[in-house]
Computed example of a mutant assay.
Amino acid sequence: MQDLSPAPASLVLADIVEPGIGRLTLNRPEARNALSRAVIHALHAEIERLGADSTVAAIVLAASGKVYSSGHDLKEMTARRSEADGGEGFFRETMGACSAMMRAIVACPKPVIAAVEGRATAAGCQLVATCDLAVASETADFATPGVNIGLFCSTPMVALSRNVPRKRAMEMLLLGEAMSAADALSYGLVNRVVASGEVINEALGMARIIAAKSKSTVAIGKAAFYRQAELSLDDAYAYASEVMVRNMMTADAGEGICAFVEKRHPEWKDK
């Protein structure tokens, strides 16, 4: 079981920006917001905490400083090479912890929106690709440059290859070159590109739209989206049809449809 005991709170700042909207901020700017084991641990715990908070409808994931995230903390990992096993145990645990944190974002019933100012590389790029939505500054860029240092970005590849066309993903992985925000938008890695300094406002605007909807309906839809994407076409339709029936039986579906027919705003019960 993933250990979610307390971690240094300062590594990931958490606040409720306004009713229904939680914000998590990577707060290790002096280390380019590298994903150390402690940061991974703290982010995982906060995602699960906000995901279980009934008052939260959407989560914005931002970062302090000029770099969104440079990926894994290579200094931390290199220091472990002096251990008896050459660091293998630590590397295995770190990759497992990071993968579990990424899966927690996908499993979170609340949509998670990346607000990207600056550069997102390697596992930092993976983090952006893993989030449900992403807004980037026009000066942001993205890269999976591990191949340049002899460490292929195999785990970032999982999220990247599920968000951008295969040839583009392989280009990023094999060449290790940076992708501009404009290219990230055209390839589907991010949803919107805005002027520098406007990223958080744009992300909050998207979060407000989500927060105005039924939390239970959004949770049903998010879970179904990721589940059906892994199925064959026939199985996906069978699964999605069953989800639609279950959704139709909820109180909020009944209220929403009645409100639409009666030309009024729905009053969600979130169930």
Rank of each mutant, 00 (worst) to 15 (best):
A84P: 11
A104G: 02
A45N: 03
L35Y: 00
A52V: 12
F91L: 15
G96D: 05
G86F: 12
E30I: 06
L133T: 05
K75V: 11
A120C: 02
H72T: 00
E76N: 09
T55I: 06
L50R: 08
R49T: 14
A123Y: 01
A58E: 09
E88V: 14
A134Y: 04
A129K: 02
G20L: 13
T121D: 03
L35A: 01
I59A: 07
A97R: 03
R37N: 13
A79P: 04
A62Y: 05
R23C: 15
P111Q: 12
I105L: 06
H72S: 00
A104M: 01
G124S: 03
A52W: 06
P111C: 07
I59W: 04
E48S: 10
P29R: 05
A97C: 09
L26W: 02
C98N: 14
F90W: 13
L26M: 08
P29C: 07
A100Q: 13
D53H: 06
K66I: 07
K110A: 12
H44L: 07
M101N: 00
K110L: 09
G65N: 13
I47L: 11
E83N: 13
V39P: 11
A134Q: 08
V116G: 05
V56Q: 11
M95T: 04
L133R: 14
A52S: 15
F90S: 10
A63W: 11
V60F: 08
